[in-house]
Write a protein that binds this DNA or RNA. Structure first.
Lengths: 104, 104
DNA sequence: ATCGTTCATCGCAAATATACGATAAAGATG
DNA sequence: CATCTTTATCGTATATTTGCGATGAACGAT
């Protein structure tokens, strides 16, 4: 965002936009699906399932961590990633609140 | 595990990411809320309610139109915008499908 | 026909996002 | 210890997004 006047938007609008931003790339959608299927997954295994370089996957994982949708636990030299279902639930509610407010 | 890197993203992953992208800016969230409150709204009225220049609001409207969440109907020199509730409903379902698949 | 209104688009600048190779850091292993 | 493995981060290149003033196109009114 260039010179946007973010103060003019509500916290709710910005939160929702932030959640949506985290979901706005197919790689990140795919990562969430991988984590839900495997429950817990080492970073390297995620990388193998993705059509992207390790550094790029790491960046997408970072973005998902930023909004709290996933967590990473260090396990020796590896990192175990898993969904944060609490935050996922909250995100789902936020989004549904918008849809309910807006139309359905 | 040698087949990595070759797979692409699925249509579903890309569709969902695209919907999320349309929702990934507070200005566009705000526009959806304005349209839901007013039901139908002339472009100029939306601009007046937004903390952004007319050209910028027009761009955000274009992005929402791109994914079909809103429609614009020309009415003389003005343009009447409204939600496309069918597409909104579909977007909501797509998103909920993900959340259901992924955790909740 | 001329003018004012409305809104999309153009052109540009700045900020962000995306991607990847290289490298660093941290732990495991011999 | 030296070395390998794993993953985050750095550096860099490119693409996309965001924002706004200026302009143009379409329309209604005078």
């Amino acid at each position: 965002m260039a010179k946007s006047k973010l103060e003019e938007f509500t916290q709710e609008e910005m939160n929702l936009a932030d959640i949506a931003k985290a979901l706005s790339h197919p790689a990140r959608i795919k990562i969430l699906k991988i984590l839900s299927a495997k429950n817990v997954c080492v970073c390297g295994d995620i990388v193998e399932l993705m059509p992207l370089a390790q550094a790029t996957v790491s960046q997408h994982l970072k973005e998902l961590k930023r909004v709290g949708l996933i967590e990473g636990e260090i396990d020796g030299p590896k990192v175990c990633y898993c969904l944060n279902t609490k935050v996922m639930e909250k995100a789902k509610e936020e989004i549904n609140k918008l849809f309910k407010k807006v139309c359905c």
